[in-house]
Structures are given as structure tokens and as C-alpha cells.
Nucleic acid binder design. Structure first.
Length: 561
RNA sequence: UGGGGUGUAGCCAAGUGGUAAGGCAACGGGUUUUGAUCCCGUGUACCGCAGGUUCGAAUCCUGCCACCCCAGCCA
């Protein structure tokens, strides 16, 4: 497992872990990542995965991957495979520590019985609506349920009958007997077990009562010997209940819960509920749509796992609400890709160029390095001839100042080949530029004797007869606002241009050298990766991972006012 | 108006009583056959506000303000 950039100050959780170890409070650090199998993992989970698995790895401990599957009606086996795949792809290993809360259903039941025996839990026959009313409000205390003082024997009997299926869903629940006047609402006799006559994806029909999160999660932590149970801020209020279970039961270990703030990313959504909505409404392709901030989406988009790990490291761990700018993620992605991605030439919007002084009967090969900064990565031979495509953006008939690309009468270097001059602009009947007639300077071939001649610009190109048609999918932010509003209104802030399909791009054939997931840079355009499925008429499809930094865009905006 | 949290530059984030790290962004400049990369440089951060303690406070105390979370038989 890679451990990146060591010289970061320790966050407050790692400081605690380090101190606990130094004080001899634990022999070994044990953490856990506890996803509910009801959706795909996203960038926020990635932060938690990097924290939990990262801390375990850094302190020679262990981390469990535990599915929190206590609610059969919400969860589905089909999500577990993707979750495993995502964690693994991110670069982490759980070894033999793949568990499920449902693995502990028997032990959980025993502990519930223990609570009843201790007079600390009771079966409540109040309907759900009444329970809510009896709970009180944020500012007023709750009231005791009329069933709160049943005898231990009666509760034992009733709980067993709940288990045996004697009651209908909603007829009764098992509740902890704590304090209905507690200022912390989580302590007002929280529900421990509810009845669900539903098959569980792992335990089948064996159970019809299922434990609630607080009970199952705390005890699972204790069973597994978790030393540091790291969760997000919204569970801070639950910590007293977590402690109550640990105090009330005879358990093999005493884990400690520590909360940190969840990750928010600007211009996207990072809640499972909202991501599911995008999928269900058909706004995106699926959970792994490259626009989605899901791990699967980022993988398909071409983000390397190391970039995500580095991103998680850079944003840090604190208890402060935060919204991270996309630039941080994008920078991490570019940074990791820049070093390793091979370069290729691809023209996005093809404009025909004819080199009028180049012999129509011949062609040649020019050598282009796979990586300009690293000769070790080799080079490739690229076909060159009289007819080429260049990007329409690289020509302007009436350009602003500082435009270093091609213009009438102007010169530009073709990357890795020759300097050309634009002699004539051909228009169609509507006045649209359809072809450039240029002449090349034979002395200026890259690597040749006259190649040191300087021109202001260098542009990319492809050899027209041998170029292959490819489809490009250009992705942009999902939202047009940085922080989506609450409720359903955020759907109105969706960016209508989050996907732009370029059906008729032209590429040098060597773009086919790479597998989906491997990153390459289309020079001057951006980083791309191959899409698994081909597009129309079988042509290769490439997803844009991220653009290159574009300082021209700013200059252009300034020049054009 | 109950309880639990959080406030350090545009966004993150170190700092744990001795005089405010770092990253991203932004803005200059250099190198460059990618307007990329790379390299240099640029920020007076009223440390939420107001008092107090101290020789000395982002760090300690008091009071206030702002924002976030909690009333599932969800996790």
C-alpha cells in the first residue's frame, strides 16, 4: 500500500491514536469502515476509507470492512460487490476482516436479553406515532410510555414472542430504558429492535426482528475489538448512547467513538440520497457515470486511485464544516497523471489543412516522445503528409492580440513536425472556414538542422488519411452552484452542459494503445481515458478525465473584453 | 427558547501561552516545440466579537455573536 507524502502534521484523530498507543491503552489499533449496502461509495466515503484504513496501516493495526446491514428493506446484496471493488481499487486491503453486522445477530439478541434482564430494556406497545408524541420535543422533556414498567419476565416473554413472529410489523418494539427527560433526545428510550417480516439478503427468513443502528453498531465495534470508531459529526449526539451500551453490558472490548466532519465538494452532491436521485431520475447514466463523485464514477472518468488518496490527505481531518473546491481534487488528479500519462495527438474539432508544397504522392513519419519530460517513456512514430487536421480553435481569421496560433499569413509549429504558414483561407457558401491552404518549411522538421527556428505557437495535428474517428465525452461540473440548496430545489441547479459529446474527433491511431482506466494526455486538450463500450459504428470513446490548466482562457477573456 | 458541535486569508489547514506552517486558488515573472509541466516571486489573516488574566494570548477565563447537527420502528 502506498503511503504518500509523509511530512503532514498529524490530525487530531491520529494524535489521539498516537497518544493512546504511547500511554499503553491498546496493544494494537483496530478501526473499521462500516458502509450500509444501499448505494455506491462516493468521494466522502473515500475520505473515511483513507482515514480508517490509513490509520490502521500507519500504526500497524487492522481495519475491518464491515457491512452495516441491519435494515433488510433498504439494503441489497448487489451493492456489496461494488463496495468491495471500490475499496480495493482505492488501494486498501481488509484481509480476513470482511464482516457484517448480520454476522452478529445472535450475539446481539443475547445482549438485548441481557439488557432486559437488567431492567434496562422493555417491549413497548405504543404505536410509532405515539412514541413520537411521547418523546417530547427539542425543548420539552418526553413522557414515560405506559408499558415502560413491565416486569422483566413479561419483557422476556414478549421479546421472545417478537422473535417468534407473533406480532405484526409496528405492533411493538424493544426499547432501552434510559431517561425520557434526557436533554439529549437519543437517550429518551431509543428503539433497539423493530419487527420486519422481510427476508434479509444474508440471513434470509431467520429473523423477523432487526436491531437498530446504535445498538448494532456499538456492539459490533465491541465484538470486533475496534479501538477507535471513527464516524461523522452527525453521530456526535449518539456518543452518550454509545457509551451507555458499553457501560450497561458486559462486553469484551471498550471502543471509543471519535467524530470528524464529512466532506463536501463544491459544485456537486455528496449524499447517497441525492446521488441515488440522479440515477433514478435518469439524469445520469448510472452510479458510475463519469460525472458522479462516486468512486466508480471517478474510476470510469480516469481518476487514478493515488490522486484520490492524495486528495484525502490534502483536505485533512477536522471537526469543521467544510466545502472543498473542485480545484483541489483536479490538481491532485493532474499532478498524478502528469508524471505518468503518455501523450497523444487528438483533434477535437477538425479543420482541414492542405500543405500545398508537400508532395501529394508521399508521406513520412515523425517521432514524438511519449512524455516530453521523460525520455525513458519512449517515443512513437507518427504519420505525416500533405493533408492534415488541426483543431478549429487553433485558427482565427481575425484574432485578438497575443493569439499565438494560426492566422492568415501567420506561422505556427506543428507539434513534433514542421513550421507551416497559412497562405489561404477557404470558405464555404455561408462564409464558414472549411479549409486552410498552407505551406510548410522543410528545413524546420523537429530534430533537424533548422528546427531551432522559433515561432510563437505550437499546435497539435493529426494526419488526415490515417487518423481514426473517435468520440470524446467532455465532462463538466454537475451543478452550476457551489453549494446546493436544501429540499428538492437543488435539482434546478443542475448544469445542463455537464456532458458534451464530440462525435467526430480525429485521433492518431496510437490512442488505442491503452486500456480503459489508463490515463493519457491528449496534448493541449486534457487527460483522457478509454471508455469500456465503443460508440456509434464501433468507434472508440474517450472520457475526459480533467482539462489541462488553461491560462490562455484568461488572456483571451481579457483581450476580447 | 433544550442538547451537542464549529469559528485562523477566496477554499482547506497547522498551531496545544513566547509573538501566525503548508496546500489549493489568484496575481506577477522565468524556462518551454503542450498558452501544459517545471522554477521563482507576491498575502500586513482585526486568528468570529467584546472584555479580562499575563511581561507576553489564536492558545487561559468571562460574556456575546454566527453557523451546523439532533425530535426514524433510517444509517
Amino acid at each position: 500500500m502506498a503511503t504518500e507524502a509523509p511530512d503532514t502534521p498529524l490530525d487530531f484523530i491520529r494524535q489521539t491514536v498516537r497518544d493512546d498507543l504511547a500511554a499503553g491503552r491498546h496493544r494494537e489499533i483496530v478501526t473499521r469502515f462500516p458502509p450500509e449496502p444501499n448505494g455506491y461509495l462516493h468521494i466522502g466515503h473515500a475520505k473515511s476509507i483513507c482515514l480508517n484504513f490509513g490509520v490502521a496501516a500507519e500504526y500497524d493495526g487492522r481495519c475491518f470492512l464491515r457491512f452495516d446491514d441491519t435494515n433488510p428493506v433498504r439494503e441489497d446484496e448487489r451493492y456489496t460487490a461494488s463496495i468491495c471493488e471500490d475499496v480495493e481499487w482505492l488501494g486498501f486491503e481488509w484481509g480476513d476482516r470482511l464482516t457484517h453486522a448480520s454476522d452478529y445477530f445472535d450475539r446481539l439478541y443475547e445482549q438485548a436479553v441481557a439488557l432486559i434482564r437488567g431492567g434496562l430494556a422493555y417491549v413497548d406497545h405504543l404505536p410509532a406515532e405515539q412514541i413520537r408524541e411521547y418523546r417530547g420535543t427539542l425543548t420539552e422533556p418526553g413522557r414515560n410510555s405506559p408499558w415502560r414498567d413491565r416486569s422483566v419476565d413479561e419483557n422476556l416473554d414478549l421479546f421472545e414472542r417478537m422473535l417468534s413472529g407473533e406480532f405484526a410489523e409496528g405492533e411493538c418494539v424493544l426499547r432501552a430504558r434510559i431517561d425520557m427527560a434526557a436533554p439529549n433526545i437519543n437517550l429518551r428510550d431509543p428503539t433497539l429492535y423493530r419487527i420486519r417480516h422481510a427476508a434479509h439478503h444474508r440471513t434470509g427468513e431467520r429473523w423477523c426482528i432487526y436491531p437498530m443502528y446504535d445498538f448494532a453498531h456499538t456492539l459490533s465495534d465491541a465484538f470486533e475489538g475496534i479501538t477507535h470508531s471513527l464516524c461523522t459529526l452527525e453521530f456526535e449526539d449518539h456518543r452518550p448512547l454509545y457509551e451507555w451500551f458499553l457501560d450497561s453490558l458486559d462486553l469484551p472490548h471498550r471502543p471509543r467513538q471519535i467524530e470528524f466532519s464529512r466532506l463536501n465538494l463544491a459544485y456537486t452532491v455528496t449524499s447517497k440520497r441525492r446521488l441515488a436521485e440522479l440515477v433514478n431520475r435518469g439524469i445520469v447514466d448510472g452510479w458510475d457515470d463519469p460525472r458522479m463523485p462516486t468512486i466508480a464514477g471517478m474510476r470510469r472518468r480516469g481518476y487514478p486511485p493515488v490522486a484520490i488518496r492524495e486528495f484525502a490527505r490534502r483536505v485533512g481531518i477536522t471537526k469543521k464544516e467544510n466545502t472543498i473546491e473542485m480545484g483541489v481534487l483536479e490538481h491532485a488528479v493532474r499532478d498524478s497523471l502528469n508524471a505518468v500519462a503518455h501523450r497523444r495527438l487528438v483533434v477535437v474539432r477538425p479543420l482541414r489543412v492542405v500543405l500545398t508544397n508537400y508532395d501529394a504522392g508521399t508521406e513520412e513519419f515523425v517521432s514524438l516522445p511519449n512524455h516530453p519530460g521523460d525520455p525513458e517513456q519512449g517515443s512513437r512514430e507518427v504519420r505525416f503528409g500533405r493533408e492534415l487536421w488541426i483543431d478549429a480553435d487553433d485558427f482565427m481569421e481575425d484574432p485578438p492580440r497575443k493569439f499565438h496560433r494560426l492566422k492568415p499569413g501567420g506561422e505556427v509549429r506543428l507539434r513534433g513536425a514542421y513550421i507551416i504558414r497559412c497562405d489561404e483561407v477557404v470558405h464555404d457558401a455561408d462564409g464558414v472556414v472549411v479549409e486552410l491552404r498552407c505551406s510548410y518549411d522543410p528545413d524546420t522538421r523537429s530534430g533537424g538542422s533548422g528546427s531551432d527556428r522559433k515561432v510563437k505557437g505550437t499546435i497539435h495535428w493529426v494526419h488526415a488519411p490515417s487518423a481514426i474517428p473517435v468520440e470524446l465525452r467532455l465532462y463538466d461540473r454537475l451543478l452550476r452552484t457551489a453549494s446546493p440548496v436544501g429540499g428538492d430545489a437543488w435539482l434546478e441547479d443542475l448544469n445542463p452542459d455537464s456532458l458534451q459529446v464530440i462525435a467526430e474527433a480525429r485521433a492518431e491511431p496510437a490512442v488505442l494503445d491503452f486500456q480503459p482506466g489508463e490515463g493519457m494526455q491528449f496534448e493541449r486538450v486534457g487527460y483522457f481515458t478509454r471508455e469500456r463500450e465503443n460508440g456509434a459504428d464501433g468507434r472508440a470513446v474517450f472520457n475526459r478525465t480533467v482539462t489541462l490548466r488553461d491560462s490562455w482562457a484568461k488572456i483571451e477573456a481579457a483581450e476580447l473584453g
